[in-house]
Simulated scan of single mutants.
Amino acid sequence: MSDTNLSAVLFKAKDLQLVERPICEPGKGEVQLCMQKVGICGSDVHYWQEGRIGDRFVVQAPMLLGHECSATVTKVGDGVTHPKSVTVWLSSPMACAGNAMHARLAATTCARMFSSWPRPLTVVPSPDTTCMERTSLPDNVSFEEGALIEPLSVGLHACRRARLSMGHRVLVCGAGPIGLCAMLSAKAFGAAAVCVTDIDSGRLEFAKKLGASHTLLIEKGQTEEQVAAKVAETLGAAPDRTIECSGAQFSVNLGVYATKPGGVFVIVGHGPSKVEFPVVSLVAKEIAILGSFRYINTWQTAIDMISCGKINVAPLVTHRFTLEDTLAAFETARSGVGVKVMIDCAKHEKK
């Protein structure tokens, strides 16, 4: 175990620093975690570059970036009665240890929801004292795959919100990490075909290799109606379910035009604070539009899907960095050259 606690701390927009922090001992009802892998999410990049995500989530004090993580338990405090069940823990701000509505409320209002400890050593509450979900990883699930449980959970939750089931034709807008996780989840749910759209041909090629049934490049000058027609032609019919993961106004409109009458359109992507809908088409087609915000009760399902081989998230990791190279890792994530950038905290440990 490391005898230092080098941490990536965001002090304000564009001010991300590596600093040493004290190593805390676990108190009553707490455990000490040693971080292994931490993935960089688009939200982390937004916080770093802009100090906020919209008007709701604003950096008001130094915060630790990174919420896609896997860790080992190194110490337990008094009152932690099941240490064997937490050999490896994963942080999940939308778990349901108790009442579902309470867990959802706690997750959506907690100011620390995005600061899940990307540092070698940290102390967190035990499962007995918090609604946060921490789940053991089976031996055949790696630490990298464990860190990808969080973004995969976003995709799984969106598919559940869409009431996606076997035989559905599905449109996924956006081939970033969340869009790819939504595609993988849709296939695992039994979708007959999944079409992924994006403005980047490289990302679409990656989506195809990852298992997308179809991909469609959105070219400059095309209208939403034109792309919607191409989606229907590609899938053989209008999609039963659409999952929007880009946050782009174009894709929001596309979802309304593309989704079949009576279908379900789930919006995951965070774009502008205000967007417009083609209301006449929305009403005439009786499309159900639902928001999907992170996840709830997905952790064990995601782990099981990876463990049994139903979903393969390993190829999502395209770039790897040590903790000391965190700034370079964030620059890589911001550039968009890869898909998922992973920071290895374990390599920082002194032997």
Rank of each mutant, 00 (worst) to 15 (best):
M1A: 10
S2Y: 05
T4M: 12
L6F: 05
S7F: 09
L10S: 15
F11M: 09
D15P: 15
Q17W: 11
Q17T: 09
Q17E: 12
R21L: 15
P22S: 10
P26L: 11
P26Y: 08
G27L: 10
E30D: 07
V31Y: 03
V31E: 01
Q32S: 05
M35A: 06
Q36V: 11
Q36I: 10
Q36A: 09
K37R: 13
G39A: 05
G39Q: 02
V45N: 01
H46L: 05
Y47R: 04
W48R: 04
I53N: 01
G54H: 03
Q60W: 06
G66L: 02
C69D: 03
C69F: 06
K75A: 06
S85H: 14
S92P: 02
P93I: 07
C96P: 06
A97M: 08
N99H: 04
A100V: 06
M101A: 10
A103Q: 02
L105N: 13
L105T: 05
A107C: 15
T108W: 12
S115A: 07
S116H: 08
W117T: 00
P120K: 01
V124G: 12
V124A: 15
P125V: 04
P125T: 08
D128H: 10
E133T: 15
E133F: 11
N140W: 08
V141K: 04
S142C: 12
E144G: 06
E145R: 10
L148A: 10
L148M: 12
P151D: 04
P151C: 12
L152W: 00
V154K: 02
V154S: 02
V154A: 00
G155H: 01
H157C: 11
L171I: 14
P177R: 10
I178P: 02
L180G: 06
S185A: 01
K187Y: 00
F189T: 01
A192H: 02
A192D: 03
A192P: 00
C195L: 01
C195D: 00
V196R: 00
T197K: 02
T197Q: 03
D198K: 05
I199Y: 02
I199F: 04
K208Y: 07
G211F: 01
A212I: 15
T215R: 01
K220S: 07
Q222C: 03
Q222F: 02
T234D: 04
T234K: 03
S246Y: 07
S251G: 09
S251V: 14
V252A: 11
G255L: 07
V256G: 09
V256E: 13
Y257W: 10
T259D: 00
V266A: 12
I267R: 13
V268T: 03
G271H: 12
P272N: 14
P272H: 15
V275G: 11
L282N: 11
E286Q: 14
A288F: 09
A288C: 13
G291C: 13
F293R: 08
Y295V: 14
Q300E: 13
T301R: 11
T301Q: 08
T301V: 08
D304Q: 02
I306Q: 01
S307P: 04
G309Q: 00
K310Y: 00
I311S: 00
I311C: 00
I311W: 00
V317L: 08
R320Q: 07
R320V: 03
D325Y: 10
L327Q: 14
A328F: 13
A329I: 04
S335W: 03
G336E: 05
V337E: 15
V341N: 01
C345Q: 02
A346R: 12
A346N: 08
E349A: 12
E349H: 15
K351L: 12
K351P: 10
